[in-house]
Nucleic acid binder design. Structure first.
Lengths: 240, 240
DNA sequence: TTCTTCTGTCACATAATTGTCATACAATCG
DNA sequence: CGATTGTATGACAATTATGTGACAGAAGAA
């Protein structure tokens, strides 16, 4: 539901066919307060990834059936998973594969055996490095401007203040105009898929967003579609 | 992705006491179009560094007289040289030293033996990461002035005292205005990529920086963006 | 050494945001 | 026209994020 505040709610997926190694990794990661998931092969890994969307994947190079590098390649090809950073685990003497791993799109690799401290240090570095994703260009609607770089919304160059949720809601609307969304869909996209809040809560945040946008009647773009949900549209803003 | 292919203006200093290894490294680097310098011991290395200001240092762990790690420590301590990225070269089985190297401030390490391709890949990565053309000109914001040469910050020609971390934080802010940074990103840029400190530590240093900037209310430029992080901006410094 | 400065972390204080509710209002339909 | 259903809105307590002072250990200076 929230951004990366405490490093403690990051989910790491461990993919290795050897249980003892998984155990060792899990211990090290849980010591560092990460949440761990485990998979023994590529197929199992894939379903967990789709299901749980981990923040980072520790991927062994050697896997039965589908190799780790093949899994990495697939993950980096898929829109939904390509942003998840991958750290490849390689055994000693597989130095050449490291390069191959990096070429496939792995974000780092670690040679076994490694110290737990090293593991965690690298993992943190990768998480930090890949933490930024999103829109870079300012979005302008008439005199309304949202600049994702500075994280500022202005109307006629005057800054508008709003809460984080309202900001995300507006951002979603601006990037998904002229389309109705049900409350459920909005919860999915703005709140994040795995939280449970009442659907009516959406109404309240719509209200709050409308309130701050009232300054130049920009709230007219947020339209209620009775029986369905809400829509943001500049074209269909018939109301005065 | 790779915009800058002109490696010719990048100077790499190779520090290793074994001539054959130096040769190998030099060949690999010159193939990749880097300019190379060589040093056989720490003392020689130091004078070359001061003299030539290389863009990156490849530093062997084992050196006669003064060890590589000791040299690294000194370089990272000196204001003039601390921004030069260092890649440590370690022999197999010295895995523990890696951590020590990173703690000293090395930006990466490579285990011997390594493939030339790997070397260059890592080197590029480090250069990309630390691609900061050092600031030379004083930065002025109204009556606030930061002189990177003398390392002095003044308000109305009156010097302000602050700790090194606060200085680096302010420097980062002054050179990256009007943009939100998460705590994580600030740790990356101000503290350095491979240290582990709590994210809340950023808050404390923000606090300390604000405190010393309160003199002429210059702390109003440091804005907190709730749910995200902090931003330095002179434009958006008005609050209701 | 001893003294000072700086750093990272903690605990607590303060402030902002959130989700939910109760109620008011508006639209739709028989 | 009521009755019914869907939405708007203000209030509020719980939760969460940030501000802030204190402190112990580390790093440096004398």
């Amino acid at each position: 539901m929230n951004l990366d505040n405490s490093n403690q709610n990051k989910t790491i997926l461990i993919v290795d066919d050897e249980a003892p190694i998984r155990d060792m990794l899990r211990v090290a990661l849980e010591m560092a307060d990460y949440r761990c998931l485990e998979a023994a092969d590529a197929q199992q890994a894939h379903s967990i990834i789709v299901d749980e969307k981990p923040n980072l994947i520790l991927l062994d190079w050697m896997l039965p059936v589908t190799s780790g590098i093949e899994l990495a390649r697939r993950l980096k090809k898929d829109e939904l998973t390509q942003s998840i950073p991958i750290i490849m685990l390689t055994a000693k003497g597989e130095e050449d594969n490291k390069i191959q791993g990096l070429e496939v799109g792995a974000d780092d690799y670690i040679t076994k055996p490694f110290s737990p401290r090293e593991l965690v240090a690298r993992l943190k570095a990768v998480l930090r490095r890949t933490n930024n994703a999103g829109i870079e260009e300012p979005i302008m609607i008439e005199d309304l401007c949202m600049d994702p770089i500075s994280h500022v919304v202005t109307v006629n160059d005057q800054a508008i203040q709003m809460g984080p949720t309202e900001y995300r809601l507006l951002e979603f609307f601006l990037t998904h105009q002229d389309r109705v969304y049900t409350r459920s869909q909005l919860l999915d996209h703005v709140w994040g898929g795995n939280v449970y809040v009442e659907e009516r809560t959406v109404d309240v945040h719509i209200r709050r967003l409308r309130k701050v946008l009232q300054i130049e009647n920009y709230d007219r773009f947020i339209q209620t579609v009775r029986g369905t949900g809400y829509r943001f549209s500049t074209k269909l803003a018939i109301k005065a």
